[in-house]
Design a protein around this nucleic acid. Structure first.
Lengths: 258, 258
DNA sequence: CTCATACTCCGAACAGTGTACGGTCTAGTG
DNA sequence: CACTAGACCGTACACTGTTCGGAGTATGAG
């Protein structure tokens, strides 16, 4: 369940950019690729990433499991198609309010994307899916940093850094959200189950940790959200601000030295 | 293959901190927990994360598959044990050369850990494993930021940010490395297989992207490493520097306002 | 010493998974 | 009309994690 990009490169590219060519001979296709991908996304959203099986997907589509393979070479390719498709549903950032707000919007809509489709974090942990929508998003990010007199390499690196951070920091958010929605508890029961067991072990063994805890480092600002979720969200925006600050410094010093 | 922390909390804590209690009655245990965990790590390192099955692990240990369940409640718990164990093999940072170098060392030894054990990135994408070694690492990170007059919440957030970034940016590095070691090619064949297919599609459709490419943004400084790997490494240190810069700014401004 | 008890170990089975194969049937082309 | 490309799919294969029940073993109790 963790693979992507293992499929035939040419075939995948074809599917991503041109879709499925209509067959010349033989019976009509009962389904079309977008519908398959959409149903797969819906299934994965609803039942969790590991619950998306070729059989269950086929059943949801009203066809046999083996028939799926006439549309898609395998599950890996299907996942790539899903990734690119959901990338297309998110809004692209605008440079209207400055590049900083643009980048922030980009990161936050990425976060929204991860939250809407938790399976994104479980698959394809690294390889970029070179689909039209993914690349369009990258292009939009580049557009934001255009005209700032940055070295080309820095532009690519800055955006890669933001992407890496977003993905890494989105994971705890999504996890907290899922734990919440699965158990349905107001507080995180995973945490409350471990806290007493943990306290026992930490006794006097980790001074900085306990000091920080008593200083309230693990408390959270508001409690409109479940505890763990709110903390993950706080941390996401905290780190994002850090990165944007660093970028701002780089840009202005680059400008002044020019 | 992507779950962790689903097991019984109390039992997992026991295993993580106290190990397996020796049985009072019945035949001697043929194996011990550390040996199981170590073999599991070795297997996962060698054959990839998805190749680690309970059956293959049992075979490598010379016992039946079902016997594993007398040592470990399930695969999820085994993975947690593996995570904590490898966390213990990495060196802890020292504050001798300042907290910035300390944090940099921490992030870089985390990266080394991900490179040595690629399966780390595939499992437990979010939930912290509350094992002794993992917590010891966290404690060491806290110690670095101690005495800098930072608000408690900021300390926790800073470290969380670094962790998120490290994980996110380590993923491309590990992926590039694995693609290289699997194919054994000097250059990344995944990339070369897709490049011509990609060029075809990108024609005049993504101006910023093509402009950046011609300006050499996707080239790499040295070529002692495979192309994709070196680029991922460059990006890792680039983003790490960005974050450390931002942290330095925060710390100094906090000091001057005090 | 006896023996029940608690425990390890494991073969077999269960319900899954992704995917390959070969056959059946349909629909457009020469 | 005959032909054949190709959609559709039942079945099978080699896996997966985990459970069950039985067989064997070492220990503590009486």
């Amino acid at each position: 369940m963790e693979y992507a990009g293992r499929g035939d490169a040419a075939r995948t590219m074809m599917l991503l950019w041109d879709g499925l060519p209509a067959p010349q001979r033989g019976p009509r296709q009962r389904l079309d690729l977008p519908r398959i991908v959409d149903t797969a996304i819906a299934e994965a959203d609803r039942a969790g990433p590991s619950a998306l099986s070729m059989r269950s997907l086929a059943q949801a589509l009203g066809i046999g499991a083996a028939s799926l393979y006439t549309y898609v070479p395998g599950k890996a390719e299907l996942l790539e198609l899903m990734v690119d498709r959901v990338a297309g549903t998110q809004s692209l950032p605008s440079a209207a309010n400055g590049w900083q707000t643009g980048l922030r919007d980009l990161a936050e809509s990425d976060l929204a994307n991860y939250r809407a489709h938790p399976w994104l974090l479980q698959i394809a942990t690294s390889r970029t899916v070179f689909g039209p929508n993914v690349i369009a998003r990258y292009e939009a990010a580049l557009a934001l940093l255009d005209g700032l007199d940055l070295p080309a390499l820095d532009i690519a690196n800055h955006i890669a850094t933001l992407d890496s951070y977003t993905r890494g920091a989105a994971a705890p958010v999504v996890e907290a959200e899922q734990a919440f929605s699965h158990t349905g508890n107001t507080d995180d029961e995973w945490w409350t189950a471990r806290a007493p067991l943990l306290d026992e072990r930490l006794n006097n063994r980790f001074p900085h940790l306990t000091a920080l805890a008593t200083r309230g480092a693990f408390t959270v600002s508001s409690t409109t959200q479940p505890y763990t979720l709110q903390r993950a969200l706080d941390r996401f925006t905290h780190g994002l601000s850090l990165l944007l600050d660093a970028l701002t410094t780089r840009v202005t010093t680059a400008k002044t030295t020019t």
